[in-house]
């Protein structure tokens, strides 16, 4: 899977489609969004990608606890790193979007807070790992914190934004689902949105596999040195 090329080609094609169709198709004019609605194809997929990457990271953390091997640990960390990158990109694209539609880049929206918390948690995860010199112990404790943090984080990311007032869709008293933009998403846009989500997520996985292969190579070199 890691070395196969079909999904990498698919990712490139989907992203080419996202960039061309995403900027060219006719979009509905909603409220004060105007043309910025096209950011949907770039901002929202970042969060989808981040969640997928973090969840895969946790899956490998669980696998590490069941079967402690260096490979599982490398997988887990690499996915967390790329997830972090996607989170930062999501925050930046969101801030730019918010600057034009809500009037300020940061307005303490519950989703903004949630994403900031997510980034802080994973930053703490890397600090924790770096503070433990012993490799096995580092991997084990890192995996435990990864699982614990993720289990605490995701319910709050999914539940709280629905319960409080939010500028994002899906908050209390606002129509739609927080993530999918719900049934009010224009059919034209849907034709671009889901391919964009898939393309960006695959790109994230691709980047991670490169990192993993590099780390595995380094590990092998160390073992034979």
């Amino acid at each position: 899977m890691i070395r196969q090329s079909w999904w990498k080609i698919l990712s490139v094609l989907l992203l080419l489609y996202t960039f061309s169709a995403g900027l060219l198709i006719k979009v509905p004019l909603i409220g004060n969004l105007y043309g910025t609605i096209r950011n949907l194809f770039f901002h929202v997929p970042m969060w989808f990608g981040m969640m997928v990457l973090f969840i895969v990271s946790v899956v490998y953390a669980v696998k590490y606890l069941i079967n402690p091997s260096v490979t599982n640990d490398i997988y887990s960390t690499a996915f967390a790193k790329t997830g972090m990158l996607y989170g930062i990109l999501g925050l930046i694209t969101g801030a730019i979007w918010a600057n034009y539609t809500w009037g300020e880049p940061w307005s303490n929206d519950p989703k903004q807070l949630g994403s900031a918390i997510a980034l802080l948690i994973y930053a703490a995860y890397f600090i924790l790992r770096n503070s433990i010199p012993d490799m096995d112990k580092r991997a084990r404790i890192g995996a435990v914190y990864n699982i614990f943090a993720c289990a605490m984080l995701f319910p709050t990311l999914w539940i709280i934004p629905r319960m409080v007032e939010s500028l994002h869709p899906g908050g209390q008293g606002v129509e739609g689902n927080p993530a999918m933009a719900g049934k009010d998403l224009d059919p034209n846009m849907r034709m671009v949105f889901w391919p964009a989500v898939l393309g960006w997520t695959l790109l994230g996985i691709w980047m991670t596999t490169l990192k993993i292969r590099f780390e595995l190579y380094r590990e092998k070199k160390l073992a034979h040195a």
């Binding site: 807070l113 918390i117 802080l120 703490a124 600090i127 924790l128 503070s131 433990i132 605490m152 984080l153």
Partner: peptide
């Protein structure tokens, strides 16, 4: 299990406890 107990606890705990 890691060194620097108290400081590390704040780093690990504060983001998790915010929600």
């Amino acid at each position: 299990k890691a060194q620097q107990q108290a400081a590390l606890m704040a780093i690990l705990g504060f983001p998790i406890i915010i929600p």
